[in-house]
């Protein structure tokens, strides 16, 4: 183990971690938005959009991010659509994450009892009001564990970004192995970097999961 080497190259890892986190967070934010939109589409049963949403969910859940990125980054330029590395990474992550988030929101919304919806209608709520004041507040608290798990999953998935020529953590590690043959040091720093990024998130998620009790009526 060469401590000097590790100290020397820590800045590279910090830069890479910033990049991973930055793109990861943008991707997660976008996929939350996409997920919520799709959950609404499915809840309101909007005709054509609903079938499209189902198709999208199946397509995105049953293909690996790596293949999606290859298509975006190497395939699309052939028809004149050129997207930067960062763009590809964000679009890919959002395409993948959107369906996972949608499923999390949907299962939360389905967990709210039908009777509540009906009572709200009986009180004269419009459908949008039912969602806003009755369904969503309860659904969100049910969805949060799944949403947290998805976030961790998506950040883990960012590890394939090196294939679209983004200098993320894997890229830096591979570079150092290739350039200096310092495999142990490079891999150790890689593991530590991911632990630093993911451990706090997973601990917070575990605490949240314990603290958030089902906020629904009854129980």
């Amino acid at each position: 183990m060469d401590i000097g080497f590790i100290v020397e190259y820590i800045p590279l890892y910090v830069e890479a971690a910033k990049l991973t986190l930055g793109i990861g967070l943008i991707g997660i934010a976008l996929s939350l938005i996409v997920g919520l939109l799709i959950a609404f589409i499915q809840y309101f049963k909007i005709p054509i959009l609903r079938q499209m949403a189902t198709g999208y969910i199946e397509l995105s859940r049953n293909t690996p991010l790596l293949v999606q990125l290859f298509f975006l980054y190497f395939g699309l330029p052939k028809v004149g659509i050129r997207i930067s590395s960062e763009g590809c990474a964000i679009i890919g992550l959002c395409f993948l994450g959107g369906s996972y988030m949608a499923e999390a929101f949907r299962s939360g919304m389905e967990s709210v009892e039908k009777g509540q919806e009906e009572s709200a209608f009986a009180l004269g709520f419009r459908k949008s009001q039912v969602v806003r004041y009755v369904i969503l507040p309860q659904a969100l608290s049910v969805s949060i564990p799944a949403l947290c798990a998805n976030m961790i999953f998506l950040i883990k998935e960012t590890s394939v970004f090196s294939v679209v020529a983004l200098a993320d953590l894997m890229y830096v590690a591979k570079d150092l192995i290739g350039l200096y043959y310092k495999t142990d040091e490079a891999l150790l720093m890689l593991v530590i970097a991911y632990l630093i990024i993911l451990l706090p998130i997973s601990i917070v998620a575990a605490i949240l999961e314990r603290r958030i009790r089902y906020a629904g009526f009854g129980n």
Partner: peptide, 19 residues
Amino acid sequence: RIMPQLVLLFLVFFGLTKS
């Protein structure tokens, strides 16, 4: 579960060989 699978692959594929 916390490590990306790609990191685990690197650990086994590159790490074991070197160490």
